[in-house]
Amino acid sequence: MASPSLIADAATGKSAAPVRGRSRRADQRPGQRARERRRNLWIYAFLLPTFVLYGMYTLYPMVASYWYSLVEWNGFTADQEFVGVANYEKVFADPQFWNSVKVTLIFMLIVAPLRVFGAFALAILLNSPKLPFTGFFRTVYFIPVVTTTAIVGVVMRFIFDPASGPIAGVLDLFGAGPVDLLGSSDTALMTAGVVYVWKFFGITLIYWLAALQTIPRDLYEAARIDGAGPLGVFRYITLPMLIPFLLIISVLTIEDCFHAFDLMQTMTAGGPFYSTEIVEIYIYRFAFAASIPQLGHASAAAVLFGLLVLVVVLMQAWATVASRRWGNRS
């Protein structure tokens, strides 16, 4: 119950921004009243499909998860028995849950900086008017983003196959012995992280290229006329103009890291020995993959996962407000 309203409160500060400051031509003549009421009817009619679908598939599940987390329930048709916070106690006492939280956070710490700063460097290069074939490079580096993640995950199992995969072929060229990068619990998370970065790198690249587009060309010209070299232009023009974007792009990318289920499930299914089991796979395992589903337990984990994401959303709200303020001051 608490969550949706909490989230709403948290976001109003930010969400109100686009609406604020535009006053519709509000005709306050008395004859206009009826027309306005009719207009409002139309407005709500336009919103009806969204109300229904969004209510059914986003708002209701968010609230219902709380109820389901308080019941003992082992199948979608079986009876539910209210057990209070027992599911939470079980989740908190489960070392595998904490393992999945840890894996999710470590995964985030590996992939988010690689995506944000790697894409930044490439965007700077691709934004240079002197580099040939930039359009071609942009197209190629973006291709993995559009491909089907669940299928890429399967293909990667073959690519990293220690006996016959092409990675093994490359390692062979350098005389390195067969290494099972996805099959060993020491390297699996790192390898999955690299694949993930490769898969979604293009999104962050587009973010940075869009941010670079916002810098007016005359600024570069003016700096050059003032005698700044390429490094000076980068240090005094490009970098300061991009700092507000760094926050937004970081948080967008970090939030994206919570959506790793497709790739992880198909590539490693959380293994070996739970070394790549992110929270979503933990939830999936208890709710859908077990022979006797424990939906109450899974729901409790889902609610906690939702709270984890909420913390990041709050950080986003804070970062956006902070960057706006920063932008206004300078």
Binding site: P4, I7, A8, A10, A11, T12, K14, S15, A16, P18, V19, R39, N40, I43, L47, Y54, M56, Y57, T58, L59, Y60, P61, M62, A64, S65, Y68, F76, E255, F258, H259, F261, V279, E280, I283, Y284, A287, L295, A298, S299, A302, V303, F305, G306, V309, V312, V313
Partner: peptide, 29 residues
């Protein structure tokens, strides 16, 4: 219109709700 701000606020707040969080009630529904 009445409620427009609240609606946009709720929408933005749920921009990043992960599938893993909502999947069980969606299946049940």
């Amino acid at each position: 219109f009445p409620g427009s701000r609240v609606i946009i606020g709720i929408l933005v707040a749920t921009l990043f709700v992960p599938t893993g969080y909502t999947i069980i009630p969606i299946v049940k529904l």
